[in-house]
Simulated assay, not measured.
Amino acid sequence: MAIAVATTRQSLADNYKTLGTWISVHTSDPGTTGTSEATGGSPAYARKQTTWTSSTGGVANGSQVTVDLAAGTYTFIGIWSASTSGTFIDKAAITSTTLGAQGQLLITPTITIS
Results as ranks from 00 to 15, higher is better:
7 T>K: 15
89 I>S: 08
43 P>M: 12
16 Y>I: 13
47 R>N: 12
111 I>N: 03
8 T>E: 13
44 A>Y: 06
94 I>L: 08
65 V>K: 03
49 Q>P: 08
102 Q>W: 03
23 I>R: 02
94 I>E: 07
47 R>P: 06
76 F>W: 11
107 I>P: 10
75 T>V: 09
48 K>T: 14
73 T>W: 05
82 A>H: 01
51 T>S: 13
42 S>P: 02
3 I>E: 12
106 L>R: 13
104 Q>V: 15
90 D>V: 11
15 N>Q: 13
7 T>I: 14
104 Q>L: 11
2 A>R: 15
63 S>P: 07
102 Q>F: 03
7 T>A: 14
97 T>H: 10
41 G>M: 10
76 F>M: 02
48 K>F: 06
67 V>S: 10
37 E>Y: 06
68 D>Y: 13
94 I>Y: 10
85 S>D: 00
92 A>Y: 08
34 G>M: 00
102 Q>C: 04
45 Y>S: 07
91 K>W: 05
46 A>H: 09
77 I>C: 06
114 S>R: 11
26 H>C: 08
2 A>Q: 14
111 I>P: 03
29 D>M: 00
38 A>N: 10
80 W>G: 00
49 Q>E: 14
2 A>H: 13
98 T>L: 08
60 A>K: 04
87 T>R: 09
103 G>C: 05
54 S>D: 08
81 S>D: 00
61 N>E: 06
112 T>K: 09
64 Q>V: 15
93 A>F: 06
52 W>D: 06
113 I>A: 09
93 A>W: 08
75 T>P: 05
78 G>Y: 04
55 S>M: 04
18 T>P: 01
88 F>D: 00
51 T>M: 12
79 I>T: 06
11 S>C: 05
6 A>N: 13
1 M>T: 15
62 G>P: 05
33 T>H: 00
104 Q>A: 14
27 T>F: 02
16 Y>W: 15
76 F>S: 01
29 D>R: 07
105 L>D: 02
60 A>C: 14
60 A>T: 08
46 A>I: 13
113 I>M: 12
103 G>R: 02
85 S>G: 00
3 I>V: 15
58 G>Q: 03
50 T>Q: 11
114 S>D: 11
69 L>R: 05
42 S>G: 11
111 I>G: 04
12 L>M: 14
5 V>Q: 15
100 G>S: 11
103 G>V: 01
23 I>N: 01
97 T>N: 10
97 T>K: 13
11 S>H: 09
3 I>C: 15
72 G>R: 04
110 T>N: 02
19 L>V: 12
110 T>Y: 02
25 V>I: 12
80 W>T: 00
83 S>A: 08
12 L>S: 07
34 G>R: 03
95 T>Q: 14
37 E>I: 09
40 G>L: 09
4 A>Y: 15
26 H>P: 11
69 L>G: 07
14 D>W: 11
69 L>A: 08
86 G>K: 08
65 V>C: 01
75 T>R: 11
62 G>K: 01
51 T>K: 07
30 P>Q: 03
37 E>Q: 12
96 S>I: 11
65 V>F: 02
41 G>F: 06
67 V>C: 09
58 G>I: 07
73 T>Q: 04
22 W>P: 02
91 K>D: 03
94 I>V: 14
109 P>D: 03
111 I>W: 03
95 T>Y: 10
48 K>M: 12
49 Q>R: 13
66 T>H: 11
105 L>P: 02
25 V>T: 07
88 F>R: 00
1 M>L: 15
22 W>K: 10
86 G>T: 05
52 W>M: 06
11 S>K: 14
